[in-house]
């Protein structure tokens, strides 16, 4: 039997075969894996050798402990409901507000009653709501065409004044069919809109609309749905659902709207907007 030879003596045939074949295989595998494969890109030119090797090693410019992407800090509004804010709104000058409101009539209608599905009715809206929306438009927290420019032109006092003016114009608003509290406040209600408006859908975490907007579609602290056109309501629901409109302070509208189906949004819009434009509804 041959004496045991050292494993590194390559003048013997087996160590020579072993070391050379292993070296060759490693070299072939390394060239294929690090240079050829590493340089290949699915939609792009071949990478240079050095870049290819680094990439194949997993060293890229972003190498390091991964961090979860942080969304940019977003505040839904600048308004804080302090005593000063409330005092400013309460002290709005209706007379001056009427003058400022001349800017609004072209879109929001004579006396603040909208004739278009694109614009909300302002008449009878809570003054605090109008003041907040104007500030949101001014701060870029809510976006809608000309409104951002118009709001920017107003001072804080102008906003409080015009809010007071519209808040006082309660007459002439269209009634809402559901206003007379007829039944259907239970989850067993067959009509989708009535059910969502008065009972919500606990399974999906949707509170009833009436909880905030009031049983007669108007309640201090939430925008009045009274007299709004169905197209406007549906558009706002969709904007909340898609995150296009984000100025609800506690995300309550985005959370609810995200859960609604397009059919449900339509049904709710028709329900609350039913008094505003019965002729258009029939056509839809």
């Amino acid at each position: 039997m041959a004496r045991e030879q050292g494993p590194f003596k390559t003048d013997n045939p087996w160590p020579r075969i072993g070391w050379w074949s292993v070296a060759g295989l490693l070299a072939a595998g390394a060239v294929l894996g690090f240079v050829v494969l590493g340089g290949e890109q699915q939609n792009g030119p071949r990478l240079g050798t050095w870049t290819a090797i680094c990439r194949a090693l997993g060293i890229a410019s972003d190498t390091g402990p991964a961090t979860a992407p942080q969304p940019p800090l977003q505040t839904p509004t600048r308004i804080a409901w302090t005593a000063a804010t409330l005092a400013r709104i309460a002290g709005g000058d209706v007379k001056h507000g009427e003058f400022v409101a001349l800017n609004c009539a072209a879109c929001h209608g004579e006396q603040g009653v909208s004739q278009s599905g694109l614009f909300p009715t302002l008449a009878g809206m809570d003054a605090g709501i109008i003041y907040k929306q104007l500030d949101d438009f001014r701060a870029g927290k809510r976006s809608w065409g000309a409104m951002n420019a118009i709001a920017t032109a107003l001072s804080d006092q102008d906003a409080a004044d015009v809010a007071a003016y519209f808040a006082g114009r309660v007459n002439g608003l269209a009634p809402i069919l559901g206003e007379n509290f007829h039944g259907g406040r239970t989850l067993r209600e067959a009509d989708v809109a009535t059910r969502l408006a008065f009972a919500g859908d606990p399974a999906r975490g949707i509170p009833p609309c009436a909880a905030c907007h009031g049983p007669s579609a108007s309640k201090p602290g939430a925008p009045s749905l009274k007299g709004q056109r169905p197209e406007y309501i549906e558009r706002q629901l969709a904007a909340f659902a898609q995150g296009i409109r984000q100025n609800d302070i506690n995300r309550q509208m985005r959370t609810v709207a995200m859960q609604l189906t397009p059919d449900e949004m339509h049904a709710i819009a028709v329900y609350y907007g039913s008094g505003a434009a019965p002729a258009e509804l029939a056509g839809r």
Binding site: M1, A2, R3, E4, Q5, G6, P7, F8, N12, P13, W14, P15, G18, W19, V22, L26, L57
Partner: peptide
Amino acid sequence: RQVPASLNGFALWNAIVLVLMIVAYGY
């Protein structure tokens, strides 16, 4: 009747495994 030392023991092959493991798993 006679086999080469390398086919009768594992010194060479353990050395090769060690090198392969360092290359394949070192980094």
